[in-house]
Every structure is written in C-alpha cells, then in structure tokens.
Simulated assay, not measured.
Amino acid sequence: MKTPLKPPFDSAGKLSSAGSRPAFPVQLNSGKGNSFATKTVAAAARATSNNGGNGQNDLKKPFQPGASDGFGLDSAVRARMVRRLAEQGVLDARVLAAMGAVQRHHFVDTALANMAYEDTSLPIGFGQTISKPSVVARMLELLQQGLTDASGRLGRVLEIGTGCGYQAAVLSHLATEVYSMERLRGLHDKARENLRPLRLANVHLLFGDGMHGFAKGAPYAAIIAAAGGEAIPPAWTEQLAVGGRLVAPLQDASGAQALAVIDRTPQGIRQTLLEAVHFVPLKSGIG
C-alpha cells in the first residue's frame, strides 16, 4: 500500500518550519525593481485591450464587456485588478494576461458582481467559494514556473475542484488542455452553464471524485487543487508526469493549511511548503 504524502509536522502536530523555504523565488521581481513590474503589467494590459477586453485569442464570448454587463465591469476594472496582483508580487506576464482576460463577475451571483474584482473569496453556493484572485494567480504562477513548453504554455492540466468554473477558464489561456473535476453535481452543472457560452475547446468538465484524479487523461504536466486535506492522495502523484508539478493546500492536525508545491523528478518526489492559505476541506465521494 502506498503511503499518502504528508506535510512535515513537528512533535506538537503543527506545520514545521523545516524545509518550508521554497526551492525557487517566492517573488519574481528580485533584482528587477519596479520597472520590471510596470512593464509586465503593461504587457498584460495590452493583451487584454488587444483582445477586446475578453481574451478573444482563447475565449470566444458572445457578449462584450462594459455597458452591456449592466455593471460597468469592463476591461479597465480587470486591468486595475491585474495591477494590484502585480503589486502583490504576481509578475508572470502570461498569468496576469489570463487573469485580465476572464470576466470574473460572470462566475458569481448577480448580487455579488460589483465585488467580483476585489481581492476576496465569494460564495458560489453548496457551501463553496470562489477563491481570491490573488490566490488563483499565485497558484497558477507556481504552476507556470519551469513547466511551460516551447510554445510558452502549460501542457495538460488536471484541476481538482471545478467550483463555478472560473479557474478553469483562466487555465484555458495557459494550458493546452484542462481536465477539471467536481464532486458536487450542483456545482458541476453551474460550471457547465457558466462556461458553455465561452466555447472553450480545450476545457473538459468531469463529474466525479477528485480524490481519484482522472487516470484516462494522465500523465499531467500540472495538477492544481482547490481543497486541502492532511495528505496528498496517491492518485494525484501517480498521475503527475515526471517533470510535472502539483500545487495544493495541505493541512496539519489542527486544521491549519499551507500551500504545498510537489515536483515529480526523475529522482522522486520533492515537496515544498509555502505560505498559509485557507481552502475548503478535501472530501471524497460525490454529492
């Protein structure tokens, strides 16, 4: 029997600081200063603007942002969100462009649309939430580091926890193919409804128990999870390609969570714990 990966805990059951330093820079602007951040944001803003504000290179949306939204939530609002993300340390130009291209307010309830571009999680029903933009961007940036192919894109990605479909839409800009699994039928149906108008040919929505992953699509260049447990399910690392990366929250016995990066190398599995995060618990089964 294979033992699930567990984070390093100390004798008190708390997350240990040992080995908690990332093997790569946490911030990407080291030694580059504000000018690098400014150029990166400008590039992302141009990508959003050139795509008519809705990412037409990858997203074929039937509606336009702005007045037709009824909220004035146009590309300028998303551009301000992108600038805030860069100021917080997310400087990967592809991630910033993808975040600026996807209309987050179309993935939340109408009553919450005016809060869609604030850096906050929002309820999406069924006891679940849509993650903060900063958390989504941070996790996607971690996936991007060292995983892009010659075209500059991620390869095949497995997402555990589709939720409302927002992160899958952002991933569609970064990956060649996205398999997204959701265990709650209501959310799976909601994500399908939200994503249907976008006609994303490289996104595949799956209803099932994410603890088992999706072996038919393996191996994956990257796996990302939107729920945290005390161990990484063995199926996830088994389905991760050699050279691939997994980003997911892990929790200790007290329920405190930390963001974990797991790399599958030719020599084996390498795990790094980063900053504290807060996600819904990882559960098995479907509902």
Rank of each mutant, 00 (worst) to 15 (best):
A241V: 15
R104D: 03
N50H: 08
T176M: 00
L246M: 13
S172T: 11
A76H: 12
G268P: 10
D119C: 08
T148S: 15
L250W: 11
G53K: 01
D119V: 00
Y117R: 04
T265Q: 12
H278G: 02
A43K: 11
A222L: 01
V102L: 03
E193I: 02
K132D: 02
Q88I: 07
A150Y: 10
S131N: 06
A258P: 10
V280D: 07
L195Q: 03
P233I: 12
R80N: 15
L250C: 05
L96R: 01
D252S: 12
I223V: 10
R185N: 05
V90I: 15
G89A: 10
R83Y: 08
R78A: 07
K216T: 09
F24Y: 14
T40I: 06
D149K: 14
A86D: 04
Y179C: 04
V170Y: 04
A111R: 14
G52L: 03
N194W: 05
M1F: 07
I223H: 04
N202F: 06
L15W: 06
T3M: 01
G125P: 14
A168H: 01
Q88H: 12
S131G: 09
D58W: 09
G229I: 10
V135F: 01
A231P: 06
F126T: 09
L250M: 15
T148F: 12
S121V: 10
G165H: 07
Y117H: 13
T120R: 09
P197A: 02
S151W: 12
R46V: 10
R192Y: 05
V135P: 03
V178E: 03
S11Y: 12
L259G: 10
Q56R: 13
Y220F: 02
V247A: 15
G19Q: 13
K6M: 03
R138Y: 11
P8W: 08
A258K: 15
Q56A: 07
R245M: 09
F207D: 00
Q257C: 12
V247S: 05
G146N: 12
E230C: 06
G213I: 00
Y166N: 05
S49E: 04
A97K: 04
L205H: 01
Y179F: 03
S30L: 15
H188C: 11
L5Y: 03
V41A: 04
L91I: 11
A98W: 02
S11P: 08
V135Y: 06
G287E: 14
N114E: 13
Q27E: 14
Q27R: 14
S35T: 10
T110R: 14
V77P: 05
L205G: 00
A76Y: 13
F214Q: 01
V82I: 10
G210T: 04
P62M: 01
L171N: 07
A235M: 12
R196M: 04
K61N: 00
V26C: 15
A67C: 06
N34Y: 09
P123L: 01
A169R: 02
L184C: 01
K6E: 00
D109K: 15
Q128C: 03
M211W: 06
R94A: 11
M139R: 11
V277I: 10
V77C: 00
A258T: 08
Q251H: 15
V77N: 07
L184R: 08
G165E: 05
V178H: 08
S284Q: 07
L154V: 13
G55S: 00
A191D: 08
R138I: 14
